[in-house]
């Protein structure tokens, strides 16, 4: 590891801290669908006194954490095909019912990862559109079309340093104008009719630092 990649250079929130920050904004009693990656970490950080019910689109409401070593069941898995558990009060159902929950507007909130989010709320998170890419969409388009509120949690920039928050998505869209809020390592941002409205900066991050790494204007926090 080169010196400039060492941990002392990391500015902003870690993946766990991002997940914890998202959890603070989820209302008590919400039915929540968590995407793959950082969104999965949110379940570890439910704030004291709140209860969320997790939906996984392959047919389970009331999903619990991973099973103890050796106690898993290959027929009890989540959408990422990892073994999970079912909490007291859980229910199983088939795919059309599961997607009726999503497409019928019954799920309150979905937290997804992103390749790009545009200032108008367009989301691209299923394909880079490359000629060699095998297209795979899963349930992402159903979730953004049907769930009442869409949060995105993502690193502010790609590993190569390009902004993921952009003026206009260059990758194929998952859905147009669907994102409500973005949680990154650097900031919390709301999508508004005027664009990216900054809600808060992560500790130690300046407005200029975040703006330089964003592909469209950031509207400053109202004084």
């Amino acid at each position: 590891m080169s010196p400039e990649m060492s941990n002392s250079e990391i500015i902003g929130r870690t993946r766990d801290e991002m997940a914890k920050r998202v959890a603070q904004d989820i209302p008590d009693g919400s039915y929540v669908n968590l995407g793959i990656g950082i969104p999965e970490l949110i379940a570890k950080f439910v704030p004291e006194g709140r209860e969320f019910i997790y939906h996984t689109e392959n047919g389970l409401l009331g999903m619990g954490p991973s099973p103890a070593e050796g106690e898993g069941n290959p027929e009890l898995i989540n959408a990422g095909k990892r073994q999970v558990t079912a909490l007291p009060g859980a229910s199983y159902f088939h795919h059309p019912d599961s997607f009726a929950m999503i497409r019928g507007g019954h799920i309150d909130l979905c937290v997804l990862g992103a390749l790009q989010v545009a200032k108008n709320g367009d989301l691209a998170n299923w394909s880079t559109g490359g000629p060699d890419a095998i297209p795979a969409v899963g349930g992402a388009m159903d979730l953004v079309a049907g769930v009442k509120c869409i949060f995105v949690v993502t690193q502010h920039c790609t590993k190569q340093g390009s902004p993921k928050l952009v003026d206009e998505c260059t990758y194929p869209l998952t859905g147009p104008g669907v994102v409500n809020r973005i949680y990154t390592d650097l900031a919390v941002i709301e999508i508004t009719p005027r664009g990216f409205q900054l809600i808060e900066l992560s500790p130690g991050v300046s407005f200029e630092y975040a703006q330089e790494r964003t592909g469209a204007p950031l509207l400053p926090i109202a004084p």
Binding site: P96, F99, V137, G138, G139, M141, A145, T174
Partner: peptide, 30 residues
């Protein structure tokens, strides 16, 4: 390639004698 919810609903419709239906999933996408 079919979005997962659309796939599930297309299969359900096929089994229920429904030839076609409208959905918002995939609107505004490739």
């Amino acid at each position: 390639l079919v979005p997962q919810g659309t796939l599930a609903e297309r299969i359900r419709a096929g089994g229920a004698g429904i030839p076609a239906f409208f959905t918002a999933t995939s609107v505004g996408t490739p």
